[in-house]
């Protein structure tokens, strides 16, 4: 899914490219789990989803996301908002994510 990213928020999107899904070596950004990032006076609000409601790694991933964003010197607090609409589908993945899946032999159609 193509997203329009505001220039001042790009660093946070780039930071989350370093946070990998615990079950697969693909970032949460390339998986298309991150729907939105906003920043306000050191507080980051991340709106995200998971591939399935039953994802067993939600707490782990949220902790990783928070930890990585807090490494940015100006970030004091991270709020994570989990939403289920629009529901995640493979169309949410970036081209890079799809290529990585193909490399690992996983169908993404």
């Amino acid at each position: 899914m193509k997203k329009q990213i505001e220039p001042h928020l790009k660093k946070y999107w780039d930071a989350l490219k370093e946070v990998l899904d615990p079950e697969f070596p693909i970032s949460v950004v390339d998986l298309g789990l991150i729907y939105d990032i906003q920043e306000n006076r050191g507080t980051i609000d991340v709106t995200m989803t998971y591939t399935a409601v039953s994802c067993a790694c939600t707490e782990w991933m949220e902790a990783d996301i928070e930890k990585r964003l807090l490494l940015e010197p100006e970030v004091k607090k991270v709020n994570i908002h989990v939403v289920w609409d629009p529901p995640w589908t493979v169309e949410m993945m970036t081209r890079e994510g799809i290529e990585k899946m193909k490399y690992w032999g996983v169908s993404v159609r």
Binding site: T49, A52, V53, D85
Partner: peptide, 11 residues
């Protein structure tokens, strides 16, 4: 409520 139940209902 759509953001809460949409994915659940699909599954």
């Amino acid at each position: 409520v759509v953001s809460r139940v949409n994915k659940l209902m699909r599954e």
